[in-house]
């Protein structure tokens, strides 16, 4: 064995890969299933009336179970957005979308055609994939609604 400590690499490269099978539970399952049919489900607390999307099985504010599910959207309003650096091509734009009728935001991608600018308060609509499997990626992105 060499006594030369310089021959030892002091940095050890490793990756941790752990498989998970996350259980969505009844509320989020309802949401994911709804996406297959291009429908957004929200939970509605019968005490405070708050509509949360993706839905919850309980209202943390009223500390009550929720049994009501209602549909919201599909149109919504941009509550905030963030463009990402993209190098040579324009970077992707993330948005927080408040779906019509909902009290919370859904984060997703915002698709802008050349010349369009993201804006807080702008009205958007989802662009759905042809093939849908019950995933948030069934929504390809949101796009700006044309005025008029």
């Amino acid at each position: 064995m060499s006594a030369n400590s310089n021959s030892v690499d002091p940095i050890v490269e490793q990756k941790i890969q752990i498989p998970y099978s996350y259980v969505a539970g009844p509320a989020v399952s309802r949401f994911l299933t709804g996406l297959k049919d291009c429908v957004f489900y929200a939970s509605e607390c019968d005490a405070c009336g708050r509509k949360t999307v993706p839905p919850l099985s309980f209202c943390g504010r009223c500390w009550k179970p929720i049994r009501e599910f209602v549909t919201v959207g599909p149109r919504g309003v941009v509550e905030s957005f963030a463009s990402m650096p993209g190098g040579e091509t324009p970077g992707v734009v993330y948005a927080l979308v408040r779906l019509r009728g909902a009290d919370t935001c859904l984060p997703h991608l915002l698709d802008l055609v050349p010349g369009q600018k993201a804006q807080i308060g702008a009205e958007v609509e989802p662009v759905w994939n042809e093939e849908r499997e019950g995933s948030v990626l069934d929504i390809r992105s949101f796009r700006l609604r044309q005025a008029g």
Partner: peptide, 26 residues
Amino acid sequence: FDPFTQRPLGLHDAISSGLQAERYLH
């Protein structure tokens, strides 16, 4: 981030900070 509706989008904390910054500035 939420594994069902947020992680598939590739969200990490620089993005959520960017979204919060834009909202606060507005």
